[in-house]
Design a protein around this nucleic acid. Structure first.
Length: 297
DNA sequence: TAGCCGTGGCG
DNA sequence: TCGCCAAGGCT
């Protein structure tokens, strides 16, 4: 078969085993269903940013049942988007999605735009998400470089355990060189799925990997990562945790809450005020004239 | 560009 | 137990 795209030297022979593996092992996710539509796919991509599939599933179903179109969400106050975001995390994504809905309604006739550049201009839609929606919803041919794809390519092609902290031009060129001429979206989702299920960050399941035999990292003896320190973010006691506590109070209340209800969930007054001001500045909370607070109306 | 922005499960 | 990590984006 001469169906293999000519990828130069690196990555030769990845396509067939990965596509075959995906055909047999793909998860049945609702946003992959034929009837998901561009809106369902956009909602899923924003929700999946830095968030595991298992936690997104119930929230995605609720959102799509509640707001099946961009116009439906656009008709709501932004606070309703934040409320139904629940505990997905990074709640500004709910505001982003709400702003997306209003922009799509006002500027694109209520339909999610198909072009990468138009998608990229939507709030909260960066390079990855624009490429993913253009690809998965509209069949476009883009390099879809998420953390899974970057890790698979780092190992299989570059022979390193982890990719660099920030996406490099080298990585992008490699990913672009690997895009097959046909079925580019299927290739993209297949590599992502391989990274999510087999070529995982912590304990890769190399025994079940369709490209293990040709994996540069394996062939090199799985050398440990030796790049710059990858320091994780602390959480306990941070402004982020404080913001989360405060927002949970607003989210779980039907209307405005007295300030005392917010004061009760965080002891350090200085930090609490800073966090609350931050939420208001970010549009996640609203301070009313009577001194109470609520989700943005 | 490095730091910030939530949350919870797992090894 | 607790650090690491999960389909990033923005400034």
């Amino acid at each position: 078969m001469a169906t293999e795209h000519r990828p130069g030297t690196a990555g030769t022979g990845l396509h067939t085993p990965i596509l075959d593996w995906y055909a047999a092992n793909a998860r049945d996710l609702p946003w992959r269903a034929p009837d998901a539509g561009p809106w369902g796919i956009l909602v899923s991509e924003i929700m999946l940013q830095q968030t595991p599939v298992a936690r997104v599933l119930p929230v995605w179903r609720d959102w799509m049942a509640r707001w099946p179109t961009p116009a439906a969400l656009a008709a709501e106050p932004p606070g309703e988007a934040v409320r139904h975001w629940g505990r997905l995390g990074y709640p500004r994504r709910a505001l982003n999605l709400h702003a997306c809905a209003r922009a799509i309604t006002a500027e694109h006739g209520g339909r999610v735009p198909a072009g990468h550049d138009e998608l990229r201009a939507l709030p909260g839609v960066g390079e990855y998400t624009a490429a993913a929606v253009a690809s998965f919803a509209f069949g476009a041919r883009h390099a879809v470089l998420d953390t899974n794809v970057r890790r698979v390519l780092a190992r299989a092609v570059r022979g390193e355990e982890f990719p660099p902290k920030a996406t490099t031009a080298i990585e992008r060129r490699l990913a672009e060189s690997l895009i097959p001429p046909v079925d580019a979206p299927r290739w993209a989702v297949a590599v992502m799925e391989l990274g999510a299920l087999v070529c995982t960050a912590r304990t890769p399941r190399c025994a079940g990997c369709p490209i293990a035999a040709g994996c540069a990292w394996r062939l090199a003896g799985q050398p440990a990562y030796d790049g710059p320190e990858r320091r994780g973010q602390a959480y306990a006691g941070t402004d982020r945790q404080c913001r989360g506590r405060l927002l949970a109070v607003l989210r779980d209340a039907p209307g405005a809450v007295p300030k005392a209800a917010l004061d009760a969930v965080w002891a350090d007054a200085t930090q609490r005020e800073r966090a609350l001001d931050g939420l208001v500045a970010d549009g996640l909370a609203e301070a009313l004239a009577d001194g109470t607070y609520r989700l943005p109306g």
